[in-house]
Design a protein around this nucleic acid. Sequence first.
DNA 1: AACCTACCAATTATCGATAATGCAACCTTG
DNA 2: CAAGGTTGCATTATCGATAATTGGTAGGTT
Lengths: 233, 233
Amino acid sequence: MAVESFTTPTVTELVPRQSSRRSHALFVALQKEIVLGQLAPEQALTELDLAQRFQCSQGTVREALMQLSEAGLVKRLPNRGTHVAPCHADDARALLELRRDVECRHLDRVVRRADAALKGDLQAMLNAMRNAARDGDEYLLSVHDRAFHTRLFETADLPLVTPILTRCLIHNHRYKILNSQPNRALEETAERHVPILRALEARDVEALRGLLSHHIATIVDFGPDLTSAEAPR
Amino acid sequence: MAVESFTTPTVTELVPRQSSRRSHALFVALQKEIVLGQLAPEQALTELDLAQRFQCSQGTVREALMQLSEAGLVKRLPNRGTHVAPCHADDARALLELRRDVECRHLDRVVRRADAALKGDLQAMLNAMRNAARDGDEYLLSVHDRAFHTRLFETADLPLVTPILTRCLIHNHRYKILNSQPNRALEETAERHVPILRALEARDVEALRGLLSHHIATIVDFGPDLTSAEAPR
DNA sequence: AACCTACCAATTATCGATAATGCAACCTTG
DNA sequence: CAAGGTTGCATTATCGATAATTGGTAGGTT
């Protein structure tokens, strides 16, 4: 194992080099508006309107829309435009179950490959969550929350599965934010990740599985359905 | 508009209106080459090369590449190009488990909403699989196989989950084709879908779950891991 | 020799303009 | 007045050209 005396972890990779891309900035902005409901489900998005609004060309808007389509936040129909994706409870519940399966099933791989860099990154993300919670910024909190779980799962080294988790995460948070009173116990949400980090440090796969499963099942109250089924494996 | 004799069911919607789009044709062609391994994993794809090869502009190539990225068949890094996605056994196994979860978990919804149109479409796809198998066209067989399972799951009416299944399916088939002797019992693969169709007609959810779970677990031989875990719910 | 810097070739990102498509309202026609 | 065809508008799809970014290389400095 490498020496872990680095005070600042590799946060450099968290905001890679995409900040210089107009289309990516647009993607980030639109994603936020969709998750916050400022762009309503089923709402139509026309490329030239967005181009004028963000002062860029139609092609750049198109690239951003295709990235949103990759995240499942919009649906693009050939020659018929782009619409914000729906957000129904049935889909949300299914995606939450799916997320639990994905995150809980490969924890042995995660623990096996966990190193100091992972620990440092997760700690940094936890602090970012705390800051966002303190500032009452629910969306920023969700951004770092997704980063936390994504970083954790990436350690399993299943690059073809990670995009699926990404999809689940964004829709989980979208449904939560769209169906809850704003600013409800944000600090608590951040602190919920502490025991997960502890179990990871102890390399306790079973404890980790139980914590994550409960953590995910209690994100949104869907009734007893989700908690009844056990975590996979 | 010419008069259509409606001997075949609503296959019109299977190839919607995308055939007239250059980028979609390119997407289909590249997808085939990737799944067949003619484009090797990790191979670099440069946009202008493809534009010249397919006689179209760079933007059109880009759109196709983004669709491939949505399917997880390529990975695009900003300013660093597009590469064919890797294809490792660990990912393939994880995606196969995930596919089984998705397909088996919502069969109650499928059965509840199944109608004559679904039955007709599935029967048509089964016939298409048989034709492809008879012609020894393993890829075409896989195309109709994916269409069969996708059409079945769409009946569950979980539009946010369907794209995830799509992703799993394409990677399942890619791994299978990349890791098997060509033309191995194609007819058998097609006929495997007959009991599934029968159980659907009988509206027997439990039988359907067992059949589908076994059907999926035996696509690729990953050892006893997949068959040991039971189908969810 | 190791390191830093300025350039170069290759590639992607963005742009503005044009072509193609789909939809809806309108008009014709029986 | 209904059915079918036609036109016009709004929007997406495609194109060719230009700008920006990257990685590597050659050259110079300590």
